[in-house]
Nucleic acid binder design. Structure first.
Lengths: 341, 341
DNA sequence: ATAGATAATGCAAGCGCTTACATTACTGGC
DNA sequence: GCCAGTAATGTAAGCGCTTGCATTATCTAT
């Protein structure tokens, strides 16, 4: 029976070049183990046949995929984009391919994605934040797939992490807000269950309040999902309180952009009537006006180092180290002194 | 020699359940071809062993990956995010997994990514825009990997596409601008080489100009890459012309946001002194103030339908059909009547 | 009961590659 | 020139799964 015309295989190349499949394989994976003349002949054959190695077969034989998986909560806004880009670039330099999927902030979806990625043979995984069912860490351990957590820094957890201290960073910002005379402070946060970053940022604000003798229980917080609309809505709700807050700290820039828009559409001056702050310092923070005073996160550095660290874990079976990055407050124009009215 | 403890295989499950590997395989892939009692026993074994099928092996044996690849120009802004999300959701419903990578608008990178995705056995590919080396289409054809183009609508091309008529959409917007009395019009576009969307949008503006007897050659255009900064810079350059343009049409919302910011920082009122328009209607368009008058693109619809269409091509080896979607102009506040000064 | 049909299961041949090991082709030192 | 030593290449055994076909168990209608 004649073979159907289909993608050429190693065998076809070998036959065409008059060598064994082993030699072809070596040409592709370890060119220096093959003499010049042969290599040329083989490469010639590869070229004319338009041969592309079959990934699955290669993986199967070599037990390595050179693939790293990453699961991020969302792709709809730019929060993770820049860091992920750096992650991918660094990975690429090291010969790895990145597989990305997004979980829409849903733990069940995340778990499914993790399993999918593992089944696909990801050599390692990048996860965002620490909070997740411990069973998942068990599973990963059982499958011997190293995982690294990013966007968070918490030592002594199941997985090593690279990130910043969300709590401390937010506290520093709150300190500054308080220093400007604000006492009626409110907060718009992402949902804090299952999201250590959101949770710790809230704690950070409470810490700052406590430090200056303000009652942290009095802090009114609205938790919502990270969308502009929701930021706007939450703002409307908070600002209608009596007495009205003079500063509204937002869990991220997206929420802050929403709050800002709402303030403006309500005819409120920012920061004259009310101050608004963000977190992350994504591009958006500089686009809105007034530009957002926010916490700058070293996205690219985080992504790049995460890649290095993860590759190290994969290749040398090391446990991986936990790295703390610094954030800094970037003062722009959405935060001003409290309006003592 | 004792086997190293490693992930359990089909064989392990089969042995544990006292059946053949074929039966286990069927339990997993076609449960109704196996009798209840056996299935339970097998599932039990799967459970206790913590078995996860090996993807590469499955692919190799089944010649199908249930994977679709997508290569988008960038993940750094939200232009493709929403559409891709819809694409992914629809794919997921149909049992497919999406692999995404970004090419940073570079043809060479795109080509490499295409090859990678094909080598990984993607059953189909989603590409953005038509413009690319014909060799790539040859390659795809040779490898028998169906590809669908999105974000563009051009009939009778190498690959079927789903999208909108960029030229006509931009012309409609330009018509409106002209209708408002603008005659000195400038444009900030993305690089048009290798980017049919950018190219056609420019043509659209020229068409509108021509239609009303204005000279299309007089249109000054700055081409730059799609970043806020560049939009700002281009704006500064265009606005310094004498006579100064009264309307600046931007190739997308990101560029428009940059232009807007620059206008404001130069103390120019938008749209009082100069009108600015965008394209795409991403979230950003509603966040900036004044909110952008722009062209609304049905991102989610496009993504969803692209998925349907591509799956159809993959599963039934159909050539795929080309679908045209409608855009509409959304009037917000960055476009106003020409200031006859 | 029993032949004949049908459902459930098992057997075993690949899928396309990598790689340990075996074989063959070159080196240079004498 | 010959031999040890090394470099280049070939041989073939899997990797873990799916699936066509063969076999065996179960059912239906007489």
């Amino acid at each position: 029976m004649s073979k159907l015309r289909s993608a050429p295989t190693l065998d076809d190349v070998a036959r065409k070049a008059g060598v064994s499949t082993a030699t072809v394989s070596r040409c592709l994976n370890a060119p220096d183990r093959v003499v010049e003349a042969t290599r040329q002949r083989v490469m010639q054959a590869v070229e004319t046949l338009g041969y592309t190695p079959n990934f699955a077969a290669r993986v199967m034989a070599a037990k390595r995929t050179f693939t790293i998986g990453a699961i991020i909560p969302t792709m709809e806004n730019a929060i993770f984009a820049r860091g992920l880009q750096a992650f991918q670039e660094e990975l690429h330099k090291r010969g790895y391919t990145l597989l990305v999927s997004s979980s829409a902030y849903r733990p069940d979806v995340e778990e499914e994605q993790i399993r999918t990625l593992v089944a696909r043979g990801a050599d390692g995984l990048l996860l965002i934040g620490h909070d997740r069912d411990p069973k998942i860490y068990d599973y990963l351990e059982h499958q011997k797939v190293p995982a690294m957590v990013a966007w968070s820094y918490i030592p002594n957890t199941r997985a090593p992490s690279i990130g910043f201290d969300n709590r401390q960073a937010m506290q520093a910002l709150a300190d500054q807000v308080i220093g400007l005379g604000h006492t009626r402070i409110a907060m718009i946060s992402g949902f804090s269950t299952g999201n250590d970053r959101a949770r710790l940022r809230i704690e950070g604000v409470r810490d700052a309040l406590r430090k200056t003798g303000l009652k942290p229980e009095a802090l009114s917080i609205i938790e919502t999902s990270y969308e502009v609309e929701n930021g706007a809505e939450a703002f409307a709700q908070l600002i209608s309180q009596d007495p009205r807050p003079t500063a509204i700290l937002c869990g991220n820039d997206v929420l802050a952009a929403g709050a800002l828009r709402q303030a403006q559409s309500m005819g409120l001056n920012v920061p004259g009537d009310v101050s608004i702050t963000g977190f992350d310092d994504i591009e958006l923070a500089r686009i809105v006006s007034p530009a957002l005073t926010t916490v700058h996160v070293p996205h690219r550095e985080m992504g790049g180092k995460a890649a290095l660290e993860l590759v190290e874990m994969v290749e040398n079976s090391t446990p991986g180290s936990t790295i703390r990055l610094q954030t800094e407050i970037v003062e722009r124009h959405s935060l001003g002194p409290a309006n003592k009215s």
